[in-house]
Design a protein around this nucleic acid. Structure first.
Length: 335
DNA sequence: ACGAAACAATATCATGTGCA
DNA sequence: TGCACATGATATTGTTTCGT
């Protein structure tokens, strides 16, 4: 931590310490100490403020800009959470924000980019004449140019969701079949072994399955389904905080992917939805290859995502990839 | 403003062990 | 053999800080 960073941290802590407590009035002492500390903060960030003002091309509006920065610093202190970041980092963004909005207020159309296209800024709420001569607001005249694209994207997403559900259903059904089969076999072999236990009456018919075991199986199926569904949504972390548990879930899903991929290829319900592409070796930092096999036809570049379900790793083992584009987008929206 | 370096948090993988 | 689980190593991604 540099000297300035540390000094800033201390000064800010003092300002915060001298803020009035909830519901109480600030004492004179608090006010004086707080003001002094605030002045110290301003001194410490002064070089940075000068730098930003120059950088944002606001030299001609120096005083306004300094005022804005003081407000920015004040706001930064109010909102500062020491556990999240250093004040020096935090205040930088506040200053930039203030200066940017000041620049926007003062000189929207003076920036080179605006000049180049001879842009004129008008308010969306300004009245304008519609074609029929009626006065209306500009806002109401704007057509939503993205509407079609968004609608199509939604439709594609919907289709992908349906497919995903169907695949999950098919997967669970498959597991159930296998599971029941196993239970039956076990029931047959265990019958002879458990026969000597005469304390319990055995009503079970030959090869019949214990109801408890069946219930247990259903429970397992439900949990499997949940795990895979979460994995497809790329939100396994919603299921548990424990990294080790998460890793286990990931492995479960990875194994499931193998089966699902098989089902998707053999089950006629999904026939025709696949376009089999030779899987490439999985990416590594040193050797990056895009690996994809889509369940749905690829949309145009940049359009909505596709459910990507199977890729193979270097050993030819299937790997399940999340719904890449959408998951990415969601993650960056959160940040 | 911007990129690089340092650092932190997570995700993924390879591998080993136990069990049915 | 194959699955479930654990664990250390490594890769990836995100954040902060610093220098220009």
């Amino acid at each position: 931590m540099s000297k300035i960073t540390a000094a800033l941290e201390a000064a800010v802590a003092e300002v915060i310490a001298n803020l009035p407590k909830d519901g109480e009035k600030q004492t004179n002492r608090q006010r004086v100490y707080g003001d002094r500390a605030f002045a110290r903060v301003l001194d410490l960030v002064a070089p940075r403020i000068r730098h930003f003002i120059r950088q944002y091309g606001l030299v001609a509006h120096w005083e306004d800009a300094e005022q804005c920065c003081a407000i920015g610093v004040h706001r930064a202190i109010q909102a500062y959470d020491p556990s999240k970041a250093q004040f020096t980092t935090f205040v930088n963004w506040q200053l930039r924000g203030e200066l940017q909005s000041l620049r926007f207020r003062l000189m929207t159309d003076q920036r080179p980019s605006a000049k180049k296209v001879e842009a004129t800024t008008v308010s969306l709420h300004a009245t304008a004449m519609a074609a029929d001569g009626e006065a209306t607001s500009l806002e109401s005249m704007i057509e939503d140019e993205d509407a079609l694209e968004r609608t199509e994207a939604c439709a594609a997403e919907h289709l992908a969701d349906n497919t995903r559900e169907a695949l999950l259903d098919a997967y669970v059904a498959h597991l159930r079949e296998v599971g029941i089969d196993q239970l039956r076999r076990r029931a047959r072999t265990q019958r002879s072994r458990q026969n000597d236990d005469t304390s319990l009456p055995r009503f079970r018919a030959r090869g019949a399955i214990d109801a408890d075991e069946l219930a247990e199986l259903e429970e397992r199926l439900a949990s499997q389904r949940e795990i895979v569904a979460h994995r497809l949504n790329d939100d396994l972390s919603d299921m548990t905080d424990d990294p080790q548990e998460r890793e286990r879930l990931r492995q479960v899903a990875k194994r499931a992917a193998k089966t699902i991929a098989k089902i998707a290829q053999t089950d006629e319900r999904f026939g025709g939805m696949f376009e089999r592409r030779k899987p490439e070796p999985r990416r590594r930092a040193t050797d990056r290859v895009e690996v994809e096999q889509s369940l749905l036809p690829m949309p145009n570049p940049g359009e909505t995502r596709v459910l990507v379900i199977e890729a193979q790793d270097m050993n030819g083992m299937p790997v399940m990839l999340p719904i890449a584009h959408e998951a990415q987008a969601r993650r960056s929206r959160l940040n």
